[in-house]
């Protein structure tokens, strides 16, 4: 597991650091993170509040820039990319699922799923619409396609958000507390859905969660404390879902 070909790595972090200016002094939040995620991995990122999880997720999601170190997405080193290239790479390679669903209320469920494709290609077309409909069917929401996003329940909104995250066939999906706002039953459904997508599409997932129950159901658990990875363990059977076999 540790000896993997870099060519197969969806995400590779080397000595990644992030510090913020706090008054006159610099505050280092991440102290040199090394991490590699292979294609098809289903990993959890856990850690107490303030451990730097969100900061790390923002760096990996290319929403923020590291202070030092290297970050590769699909083998592309990102530190030298321009703002425009970063935005494009983010749109095409990374899908986001946020805790607060964050759909665009002015659009229908189907249109929300189409949104990343629309942003990428500039104009809507029928292929886009078909892809979105297929994704909505995949999360079991075909009959809600034309509902305004604001009229959907929390669980339905999160399903739409997952479908949207997959629209561009991203290499990596980052999920920040994807079940944080849902009741246990719905949370289990959503988690099962993520798992299903992971197995069907071989999409790599990195899931930030506080919930040990959910973390326990991931293939790998990365634990972050005070800006350092303190443990990185396969759980329970690491190779089961990997494409290597």
């Amino acid at each position: 597991m540790a000896e993997t070909l870099p060519a197969n790595a969806v995400l590779q972090l080397a000595g990644l650091k992030k510090s913020y200016l706090s008054g006159d002094s610099e505050l280092e939040v991440l102290h040199g993170i090394d991490l590699t995620l292979q294609r098809g991995e289903f990993a959890a990122l856990i850690g107490p509040s303030g451990s730097g999880k969100s900061t790390l997720l923002n760096l990996i999601g290319l929403l923020d820039r590291p202070s030092a170190g290297q970050l590769f997405i699909d083998g592309v080193e990102t530190s030298t990319l321009s703002e425009t290239e970063i935005t494009r790479l983010r749109g095409q390679r990374i899908g986001f699922v946020f805790q607060h669903h964050l759909l665009i209320p002015a659009f229908t469920a189907l249109e929300n799923v189409m949104m990343p494709l629309l942003i990428d290609r500039g104009r809507p077309d029928t292929a886009m619409r078909a892809r979105a409909a297929e994704l909505l069917a995949g999360v079991g929401l075909s009959e809600r396609a034309d509902y305004p996003a604001s009229k959907l329940s929390g669980g339905q909104q999160q399903r739409v958000a997952i479908a949207r995250a997959l629209a561009m066939r991203p290499s990596l999906v980052l999920a920040d507390e994807p079940t944080g706002n849902l009741d246990t039953h719905t949370a289990d459904d959503i988690f099962a859905l993520l798992r299903e997508v992971n197995q069907r599409e071989q999409t790599t997932f990195l899931i930030v969660t506080h919930d040990p129950r959910l973390a326990g159901r991931c293939d790998r658990i990365v634990e972050l404390v005070d800006g350092d990875i303190v443990s990185d363990r396969p759980h329970p059977i690491p190779t089961k879902h990997l494409p290597a076999d």
């Binding site: 703002e83 935005t87 494009r88 986001f96 964050l102 942003i119």
Partner: peptide, 16 residues
């Protein structure tokens, strides 16, 4: 601002 943030995260450029 949240919607703008999410659109940006999905790859919308500053120009868009």
């Amino acid at each position: 601002s949240r919607e703008i943030g999410i659109l940006r995260a999905m790859g919308a450029s500053r120009g868009q």
